[in-house]
Structure formats: structure tokens, C-alpha cells
């Protein structure tokens, strides 16, 4: 294990404001591994909402804020592929014309890790001693899977959970239709896409759908609940701390 004694926890805004239990699970998993978890208290949002909506100067201000808050970290861990992809790939783009900030952005980008990536690739762990009796299916979030190339890591972690049976749904790597503001701007299209995802989840006969991004999971959960399904959604951190 590399000698990290301390990691900085970048809390995605959806975790901070809607799903704090996911944040608590992340802290628990990391602390159980003997790591000190630092949560910078001033953090808010990485700026992805502004960036994806075209408001780059706003996004730049939030990026500067993020970089300032996190640049002294040894390693930054975040339970969202989407937020990590923002920092890793889009921050450097935002500061293309500003060499000083570009360097700082790249330094931060080099030490940010998505939660499952950190556990599997950095710490080389796949069995954390968790137990969870259920049949689970895994949803690949697009930014995590395609932009960061992370799809094996969460599955290895899930297979390491005692009592958990992992079943693959059809088209696990197909978009759930969330797309951030897309889901509100074009609700009919978004709904049609999430309906396919939910159909595939239900066909898998899993009782839990696990993911690594609360944006996608909020979308899937919302549709499942509307249909009266009892299938639960869980962030992978919640499965790993049981």
C-alpha cells in the first residue's frame, strides 16, 4: 500500500445535500482501513453544472475555489465518477489560456481518485470484509466508465462482498438518461431512456441496483419508486461498510 496516511474527501454536492449517508459510508470505509479522512469544510460544488450548461467563466471560479481548497491534499477521494472526470479532464481545459492556473489544475487532477479506483488501483484492495446478503446488479455510470475507464474495479469490490450475488443486467453500460440538466430540460426523452434502464434492472431480478454516481442513482431510484418497485438503489460505499 502506498504510504497515504491521510486522504481528502471531496464530497459531491448530491451526497452533501441529498444523500449524506453515502458520505458517512465513504468515511467509514476509509477510516476502517486506518486512513485519516480530511473533509475540507468550505467545499461546495466542483462546477460541473455550470460547465455543462455552458457557463464556463462561472465554472472557472468554482474550479479555482476547488483547487485552492484541495491542492495541499496528499490524495483526493471522491465517490462520483462524474465529479472526478470534471476535475481531471475539464479543469485543465478551463485553464488552457492561463499557465499558472493550468499547472495547479493539473497537479490537482493528478491526485484525484474515484472511490472504487482508489480502493482497487491505489490501495490494491478488493475484499474489505463486508457482508451483504442480496442479489445486486451494477449500473455503469457513463463518465466513470467511458471518461475514466473504470468498470472492473466496482465489480471486483462487489464480488468481494460476502453473501452478495452479482448479476449483470442487459446494457449495464448504457446511459440512464440523467445527463444533469438534460433530465429537466428534456424530461420526456430522459424518461424514455430511464425506462429502458429500469426495465433491464427489473429483468435482472436483482433486489439492489448498485452504482458509483448518485446522479444516475437518483434518476433510477426516482423512476423505480414511481413505478412502485421495491428494488433499492445503493452507492457502492453503502454496500462496502456493512
Amino acid at each position: 500500500m502506498p504510504d497515504f496516511s491521510k486522504v481528502s474527501f471531496f464530497v459531491p454536492c448530491l451526497v452533501d445535500t441529498i444523500y449524506p449517508e453515502v458520505g458517512r459510508s465513504v468515511v467509514k470505509v476509509l477510516e476502517n482501513l486506518g486512513l485519516e479522512v480530511d473533509c475540507p469544510r468550505e467545499q461546495t460544488c466542483c462546477g460541473q453544472i455550470a460547465f455543462n450548461s455552458g457557463y464556463r467563466s462561472r465554472a472557472r471560479r468554482l474550479a479555482e475555489r476547488f483547487i485552492t481548497l484541495f491542492e495541499d491534499a496528499e490524495a483526493i477521494v471522491c465517490p462520483s465518477g462524474s465529479c472526478v472526470a470534471m476535475v481531471k479532464h475539464q479543469y485543465p481545459l478551463l485553464f488552457q489560456a492561463d499557465p499558472a492556473w493550468l499547472k495547479r489544475a493539473r497537479d490537482v487532477a493528478a491526485k484525484i481518485f474515484e472511490f472504487t479506483q482508489f480502493l482497487v488501483d491505489v490501495l490494491d484492495l478488493t475484499e474489505l470484509g463486508a457482508r451483504y446478503s442480496c442479489t445486486a446488479t451494477y449500473h455503469d455510470s457513463c463518465h466513470l466508465n467511458r471518461h475514466l475507464g473504470i468498470h472492473r474495479q466496482p465489480r471486483r469490490l462487489l464480488r468481494g462482498i460476502q453473501g452478495l450475488r452479482l448479476v449483470e443486467m442487459e446494457d449495464a453500460d448504457r446511459c440512464c438518461g440523467f445527463g444533469g440538466a438534460f433530465s429537466m430540460k428534456y424530461p420526456d426523452i430522459s424518461l424514455a431512456i430511464v425506462q429502458d434502464k429500469v426495465d433491464n434492472i427489473l429483468a435482472s431480478k436483482a433486489d439492489i441496483v448498485v452504482g458509483c454516481d448518485m446522479g444516475c442513482l437518483m434518476n433510477i431510484q426516482g423512476r423505480l419508486n414511481r413505478l412502485g418497485s421495491s428494488v433499492q438503489v445503493k452507492h457502492i460505499a453503502q454496500m462496502l461498510c456493512e
Binding site: V11, D16, P20, G23, C39, D188, L191, N219, G222, N225
Partner: peptide, 25 residues
């Protein structure tokens, strides 16, 4: 509105009473 676009076909997990960081503090 404008969040009614979301609840047209989906339910929504409510905001937590306090943020994660408030709880932690």
C-alpha cells in the same frame, strides 16, 4: 416548477435535513 419536469415521471429523494458536512461538524 421548474423541478416539476423531474417529477413528471419520477419521484425525488428529498433534501437531507442537514448537509453531510454540517452533520460531520
Amino acid at each position: 416548477p421548474p423541478f416539476s419536469a423531474w417529477t413528471k415521471g419520477r419521484d425525488l429523494q428529498p433534501l437531507a435535513p442537514r448537509t453531510f458536512l454540517q452533520d460531520l461538524q
